[in-house]
Simulated scan of single mutants.
Amino acid sequence: MKTPNSTPITATRLALRWTLAAVAVLVLAVAGVIIANRTLFSPSHEVKLLQRYLADGEGAKALGLMKAQVPEGDAVALNGEVLKRTQSGITDFSVDKPQEVERDSELRTVTAHYKATGVEQQSTYTLRHAGKSWLFFDQWEFEPSTLPSVKIKANTVNEVAVNEQKIPLVAGVSSLPVFYPSVLDASFSTKNFSADTRGVVVTKPAKDPVEISLKTQPTKAFVAAINTQVKKYLDGCASQQVLMPSGCPFAYNTSARVDSSTIKWNINNYPTIDVSYYNGAWVLSPLKTTATLTLTEQDLRTGAKEKKTVKDTYSFTADLTTSTTEVSVVPVAGGEQVAQ
């Protein structure tokens, strides 16, 4: 039904409207392809995807994406919970726009910025154009590389904790391949020895491993155990009612006659225990003790008796045999080890 103000829609005008609508749809589709190609199918997206795999502990997917070689070593940090822990200190991850590489138009570099335990860091990745999918979308692949590794060194112990996971040491050393970026913390604590946590941030591949050298320190329990054994040894020396206790540093010389029942040794000061690591073993510094001897001497010529008190300082050494849980102290007096 026509009205006085209505205008008939001709076939030409209808076709024009459909054409304009089709062009608009095509423009939107092209724009969508361009946007998708710059985001979902860009080198930067691949780097973001890699970081997401690492944060989720998906080491197999990350390794497949990178196509990287894995150096020899303990792979504990390449998957699962330990991998997640290496990423827990990585925050505020972002990427720059891909940059062309002058020598090869098919290559792009992408620099990622992030904080590692609160400190600004960055890593750079190289990707190669690998053709197109669905005729429109670019495909990018990481350039082949070799993962970095971390070498952990510690004496005295045969295992350490790395990001809360215990790993064995062989001759005091272990090597761990890692992804980058990664934050690794290493430490250990046993009854006799411990090492404060030391950490590294790995931001790129490297020919040589990043090293974590743990400094072993004796624990209070270790020093206390040595102190107890040294005191027991000296108390045993003091209990002997002789002028030269057997296997002991104490000695008193006199030309007078001495009634053994009057001889009494007393320890005034026990040694201070000072332990250090030297030439592959734990050693004690020379030990000093102060003791007082009371006795009654009888002059052989006159027969007169005299009560004496003699105070002196005596030195000796001791050998240690240690493990992470045990320690044995063998005193050395007069150049000979003393059986206890």
Rank of each mutant, 00 (worst) to 15 (best):
K97R: 14
T91H: 09
A112V: 02
V101I: 10
A161E: 15
E164V: 07
N155D: 10
T91M: 02
R103F: 11
P148S: 08
E141A: 12
H129W: 13
K132T: 04
T156P: 02
V170F: 12
F142E: 04
D92S: 13
P144W: 11
Q121E: 09
L127P: 02
P168W: 09
V119C: 00
V157K: 10
A130R: 11
E106C: 01
A112K: 08
V150C: 07
E120I: 01
K132G: 00
K153N: 10
Q139I: 05
S123Q: 08
E120R: 15
G131F: 09
S133V: 09
L107Q: 08
L127W: 13
V160S: 09
R108F: 08
N158V: 07
K153W: 01
K151F: 03
V150N: 11
T146R: 10
D96M: 04
S149H: 12
D104S: 13
V110E: 10
K153V: 09
Q99M: 11
F136W: 13
F137G: 02
V110R: 07
I90F: 05
S133N: 13
I90N: 04
L107D: 05
Q121C: 02
D96T: 06
A154V: 03
F93N: 01
G89R: 15
S94C: 01
G131M: 07
S149L: 06
N163F: 10
V157L: 05
E100N: 15
T117L: 13
S133A: 10
E100M: 06
Q122V: 00
R108G: 01
F93I: 01
A154H: 09
A154Y: 14
P98N: 07
V101T: 08
S123V: 02
V160W: 09
I90G: 04
E143R: 11
T146D: 05
Q122T: 03
S145W: 02
P144I: 01
F136M: 07
S133Y: 02
L147C: 05
H129E: 10
K97F: 08
G118V: 04
L169T: 03
T111I: 01
Q99A: 15
Q122H: 12
A161C: 01
R128W: 07
L107A: 05
F137N: 05
E164R: 12
R108S: 03
Q165Y: 14
E106S: 14
V157G: 05
Q165E: 15
V160H: 10
T124L: 11
Y114E: 03
G89C: 05
E102I: 04
D96G: 02
T126E: 11
V162D: 12
N155P: 03
A161N: 10
S149N: 14
Y125N: 03
T109L: 07
V110W: 08
I90A: 03
G118H: 14
A116Q: 08
